[in-house]
């Protein structure tokens, strides 16, 4: 039988899903064992026991200096910035993206400008943001918005324009005004697509968040990683990276779940 026709059974699929993760862990354990054998004080690849110890210390014991549980307070600080940034970006995308997608006048006015702005490398703006908005939360949230919003806006306006013209004309024959077409025809049909592009922007959003926190913050996941980097504390960095990844994966899944729940029709074949 040709390989192109071979399909793994359900059990085999599960095993295959887990295989790369298992391989990664095994590779780490072997590397760690080899290094620790050569030098018991090696910090680069700490053993599982050290990692568990550190996670316990960061997550379940209060920090002696501040009394906070560091992992959770860092997570709360970072997620708040992330939600604020993504929330503002989504709101901007809905308003501006729909205007561009719906109205030829707005498209002529704003589309080239947004296309231009979306090409500005957001990290290059970071110093400007820190200077203008100070070192507080505003500049970090602004960085996420600047990085994520233009892409969301462009994606939303493109998917609004991709709706068949027939649907718009049909709505007009059903007595819809421009406002009603936007509200009842275009908006509900671009929302599932907005959620999908929000999922895809989770990665970049975390990138901008950590970049901002690395430079100036007093809490946050990115702040902690860049703080302990000075002491080569890989036992903190590895769990933090894994935790950030897990948060991003959970966010991704939750958004997709929400899309399926709220817009059941978007799953149907031929719905677009």
């Amino acid at each position: 039988m040709r390989w192109i026709n071979r399909r793994p059974s359900r059990g085999a699929t599960l095993v295959l899903h887990c295989l790369p993760f298992a391989l990664l862990i095994v590779a780490y354990l072997i590397g760690s064992a080899i290094r620790l054998e050569a030098n018991p004080n090696d910090k680069l690849l700490p053993s599982l026991a050290t990692l568990a110890d550190t996670v316990n210390r960061m997550a379940f014991q209060p920090d002696p200096r501040t009394g906070d549980y560091l992992l959770w307070s860092d997570t709360a600080a970072s997620l708040w910035r992330l939600f604020a940034g993504l929330g503002i970006s989504t709101a901007l995308a809905l308003v501006i993206g729909l205007l561009i997608g719906l109205l030829p006048v707005m498209r002529a006015t704003l589309a080239p400008f947004i296309a231009f702005v979306s090409m500005v490398p957001p990290l290059a703006l970071l110093p400007i943001l820190f200077i203008v908005m100070g070192l507080g939360e505003a500049s970090k949230i602004a960085l996420i918005v600047i990085g994520v919003a233009p892409i969301l806006i462009r994606d939303l306006s493109l998917s609004a324009q991709a709706l068949p013209r027939e649907q718009i004309v049909k709505a007009e024959t059903l007595s819809a005004s421009t406002w009603l077409i936007g509200l009842r025809v275009v908006l509900p049909q671009v929302l599932p697509r907005l959620l999908t592009s929000l999922r895809l922007q989770l990665g970049p959003a975390f990138l901008f968040l950590i970049a901002a926190e690395a430079i100036s913050a007093d809490s946050g996941l990115g702040y902690r990683i860049f703080l302990v980097r000075r002491y080569l504390s890989m036992d903190v960095i590895f769990p933090y990276v894994a935790w950030i990844t897990l948060l991003a994966v959970i966010g991704d899944r939750l958004i997709d779940l929400a899309r399926r729940r709220v817009f059941p029709w978007s799953e149907l074949e031929g719905a677009r």
């Binding site: 068949p164 027939e166 649907q167 049909k170 709505a171 509900p188 049909q189 029709w265 149907l268 719905a271």
Partner: peptide
């Protein structure tokens, strides 16, 4: 004036 097209005549959502 009402219209019915070959495709895209109804709203998928």
């Amino acid at each position: 004036r009402g219209v019915v097209y070959q495709r895209y005549s109804v709203f998928p959502h």
